[in-house]
Nucleic acid binder design. Structure first.
Lengths: 106, 106
DNA sequence: TTGATATGTGACTCATTAGTCACGTAACCT
DNA sequence: AGGTTACGTGACTAATGAGTCACATATCAA
C-alpha cells in the first residue's frame, strides 16, 4: 500500500493513469507522445513506479508493451484507509451544521 | 489537491494522521514523543507539510499548539479522484466473475 | 525576574527522486 | 540479411525531500 501512495504522489503519474482511463491498453511510445515536456525515458521511469505499485499492468505483445489500468489498488486504498476518515467527515459536517444553526460565539 | 497526494505519500505523515485519529487535538511535543526514531524537528517538518495540505489544522493555545485532523481534503480526493476509478473496479470484478464462471481457456 | 517549558527558524547534510543520454536488445518487414 | 521500430538498461546530473542541530522566541509558574 505504501507503493500505491508513493506512486500517486507524482502529478505526472496521475496523468498517466488518467490517459489510460481514457484509453486503456496504450503502448509505451503512445503514452510517451502525450508527454511532450518529457522524454520517453522519463515516462518509462514513471511507468516502472506505477507497475511497482501494481496500478498498471504490462502485457507484452511482440516488440510492443501494452499498459492496462488496474483500479484494484486504488479501491483498496479507498476501502482500507480513506473510508476510515469518511466517518469523521460526516461528523465534521454535522458539527459544522450545528455550529451554523446554533452559533454560540461571534 | 496536489498537496494532499504529496502529503499522504510519506508513511510517517500517515502515522501522524492516524495518531490524531486516535486522539485529536494533540500538541506538537505530544506527537513528537510518539516518534522515537525521529527528533521533534523532523516531526515538525512533517506537520508543516500536513498543514500545507490542510489535512491538519493548528490551533494556538498560549505556548502550545494543538493539531486537529481535517478529513475534508481526504474526502475530496475520494470524491473527485478515486470514485472515478471505482466504476472500473466494479466492471473489473464483473469481468473477473464472468471469466471464472465461463472459462474459455486453460 | 528567573527559570523552565513549548514551539519556531535557518542553515546544513544525506538520501532519494526526476529526468536525460548513450547504448543495447529484440521483433518486425521486405 | 539489413534497416527500422519498440522497448530496456546503466550511468550520470540536478533537484527535491528527510532529518538534525544550534539558536531564538514566547509563554507559564513561582
Amino acid at each position: 500500500m505504501d507503493a500505491v501512495f508513493r506512486a500517486l504522489a507524482d502529478p505526472t503519474r496521475r496523468e498517466v493513469l488518467d490517459a489510460l482511463f481514457v484509453e486503456d491498453g496504450q503502448t509505451v511510445t503512445q503514452l510517451a507522445e502525450r508527454f511532450s515536456e518529457m522524454t520517453r525515458f522519463g515516462v518509462m521511469k514513471h511507468l516502472a513506479v506505477l507497475e511497482e505499485a501494481d496500478l498498471v499492468i504490462p502485457v507484452r505483445q511482440g516488440r510492443t508493451k501494452r499498459l492496462y489500468l488496474n483500479p484494484v489498488p486504488i479501491e483498496q486504498v479507498a476501502n482500507r484507509w480513506i473510508s476510515k476518515y469518511a466517518a469523521r467527515f460526516t461528523s465534521a459536517l454535522v458539527a459544522l451544521d450545528q455550529h451554523i444553526t446554533t452559533p454560540e460565539e461571534a
